[in-house]
């Protein structure tokens, strides 16, 4: 389990994170939500050790992450950032094989090949394993990167906006895969999501950030309420329950005219 103690992050005199203390529940999916510039990605990058925190500590199972060798850390925490432009000529299989780098430093063992196979199976990518990444659609490429992250076989996965630029079908596929990672394999997933409906329907726990601080956090039912979301985003919300979960309508909620 990963915990944050009084985490601060500033660029010069611009504070991005201010006194963030949190404990992320193990074996659950936690979504980080909030407006742009709230510090969600920065928080995730600090946990991934891609950014040093200005003050405060991050503990992984009670151990300060700064004291863990980076090579060991990659066997305990896997990170996936947004895949922007990628022009390397690699096959899906090549990419997923990088997920085994923390274990075998590039010389794949039989064990590694099995894990790569399982990761491809898990996301239904077997048919594409020999396809080149630059010939895939954005959604397929994102799936391939997720497969690499899964192949790292870590207890904790940190995903920075994994749904960015994806169509609905791929977004649903990715979220279902994340759900299965947690339910079937007991892994902990922390992700930044912009679509409140994906956060509400696929995660166990939600952390809402605003202006560099934690606005509210807790189980989905506690955080995703009309009043709380309105305060968080400054936007009127209407939560519509349905048999399969619920939908947060912020496009044209019927209450909006009275509220504004």
């Amino acid at each position: 389990m990963i915990t944050l103690e009084h985490l601060h992050k500033a660029y010069g005199d611009k504070t991005v994170l201010e006194d963030v203390s949190l404990a992320f529940p193990a074996g659950q999916v936690t979504s980080l939500i909030g407006p742009n510039g709230a510090g969600k990605s920065t928080l995730l990058m600090c946990m991934a050790r891609l950014l040093p925190a200005s003050r405060g500590r991050i503990l992984l199972d009670g151990q300060d992450i700064g004291r863990i060798a980076i090579a060991d850390y990659a066997r305990r925490v896997a990170t996936l950032r947004q895949v922007l432009d990628f022009n390397l000529r690699l096959t899906v299989e090549d990419l997923v094989a990088f997920g085994r780098f923390p274990y075998s430093r590039g010389l794949l063992t039989a064990d590694d090949h099995q894990v790569i196979d399982e990761s491809l199976d898990f996301l239904g990518l077997q048919a594409l394993r020999r396809a080149y990444l630059d010939e895939l659609s954005g959604g397929q490429r994102q799936m391939a990167f997720l497969a690499m992250t899964i192949a790292q076989r870590t207890d904790l996965l940190l995903l920075d906006e994994p749904l960015n630029n994806l169509d609905m079908k791929h977004a649903v596929q990715i979220m279902q895969a994340i759900r299965r990672l947690c339910d079937e394999q007991g892994r902990t997933v922390i992700l930044v999501v912009h679509d409140i409906n994906f956060a509400a329907n696929y995660s166990d726990h939600v952390v809402a950030m605003k202006q560099g601080a934690v606005h509210s956090h807790g189980p989905v039912a506690e955080v995703v309420t009309e009043a709380n979301l309105r305060a968080l985003f400054g936007l009127a919300f209407e939560i519509l329950p349905s048999a399969q979960g619920f939908v947060c309508n912020y496009f044209n909620p019927s209450l909006s005219r009275e509220l504004v």
Binding site: A74, R75, L88
Partner: peptide, 20 residues
């Protein structure tokens, strides 16, 4: 060469895969 392959993925991914 294998470290170079990982470095080609960019700074963030290289760190995420355990490279200093």
């Amino acid at each position: 060469t294998r470290v170079l392959d990982v470095l080609a993925l960019g700074r963030d991914q290289a760190i995420a895969l355990g490279l200093d």
